[in-house]
Design a protein around this nucleic acid. Structure first.
Lengths: 201, 201
DNA sequence: CGAAAATTTGACATGACTCAACTGGAGTGG
DNA sequence: CCACTCCAGTTGAGTCATGTCAAATTTTCG
């Protein structure tokens, strides 16, 4: 993976959302640096202050937090062209509670907080971009929240499969369970029940 | 309630977050109009396209959505100086799934989508303000989500009381249950159990 | 191959739901 | 000021989805 190609991918993504002059494209592109992340390594680690905003170039990540009982809860899976970062931690300078772990060898374009502030000064339009991205994220999380409080595990599972066909091939089952907010045992039983029901038809 | 006082309250709030020149203050203030909302009336109604962003001047709102089984789920309660609106609907022009209902006679400063876009053009700094506000909202929702998936109803209840002392005097119990994601019966039983436990000590 | 991890299965426990009945207070009209 | 209604809250009995813990089985990968 080559940094120029990665930066082009980022710029292609950005100009879908806001217009940039050629000069601005260069400034934005150069502010980001390419990080290879090996499978199982972390881009974000909870309790860490070292926060970056990342844009996934290649690979898959699971973004999760750990609760009091040391159980991990997946907030989302991130693929190509997804953003990764704890915005609250990034901008407010407090330790993050999120982890982002590579599930395969991956590449991320990342930017640190100070570079980001400088970039915002050079290219104020980016405020708009990040306002829009944050709004999208908020809206997605709101839907996820509503589904979590108003649907049972089976409905949530079906929704995930519908929205993300093929995810079962990409992500091990116990992590899907963690995304759904149930235990691996429960997901296993649920799937058995689903196939049993189909067989009996 | 007088529109000048309301606008002053809004500007006082905004300048805590970003700097504005006197001229900008006036432009921002004038873009917002004052709405009185009677108890039980709605500022936002699901399936409606008529979306506004609102800033609560006085009063209390419950912001909720209705699920497939016609159960209402409270997303949050909004008091003085809180924002109300469905950002996704507001900016992307699709019908909202949120309701915001006044729980007492209330006043809101509101702005429509087009006025907002014009205002962004006149005062681009506002992009930054709304980026920051949306980030805060996102971060709060993320915490709420984590609590929902990793704590039981009792822990969530205690957290609410801790974060919002006195909320039980402001909001009827069945709506607190709705916020917690449980039925009124369950909350009633839980509270009984809590006091019983204390009595037996 | 062999160890470690993931998944499945079983037996049982439990938190929250469901439905229904009852209680008590707030407001309303006679 | 009482009787009446309405709504919120409480209580009870039974059910169900999911959790808990433990063991067996399968898959993954060094």
């Amino acid at each position: 993976m080559n940094v120029e190609i990665a930066r082009k991918q980022l710029i292609d993504y950005i100009i879908q959302k806001i217009d940039l002059t050629e000069e601005e494209k260069i400034m934005v592109a150069n502010a980001y640096h390419l990080n290879p992340i090996k499978k199982k390594d972390f881009f974000l680690k909870e309790r860490s202050f070292c926060t970056f905003q990342g844009f996934v170039i290649r690979g898959t990540f699971r973004v999760f937090y750990t609760d009091k009982k040391s159980l991990e809860h997946v907030l989302y899976f991130a693929f190509k062209d997804w953003w990764i970062g704890d915005i609250a931690s990034f901008f407010d300078d407090n330790p993050t509670s999120l982890n982002a772990q590579a599930m395969e060898d991956s590449w991320i374009l990342a930017i640190g907080r100070e570079e980001m502030e400088q970039l915002f000064q050079k290219v104020p339009k980016l405020e708009r971009l990040f306002r829009i991205i944050t709004q999208r994220t908020l809206s997605v999380l709101q839907k996820r929240f509503f589904l979590t409080v108003s649907a049972n595990a089976e409905e949530r599972f079906k929704e995930l499969i519908l929205r993300h066909p093929g995810i079962e091939q990409l992500v091990p089952q116990h992590q899907i369970a963690s995304y759904l907010g149930i235990l691996p045992e429960s997901l296993s039983r649920m799937k058995k029940q689903l196939t049993d029901r189909n067989v009996n038809k």
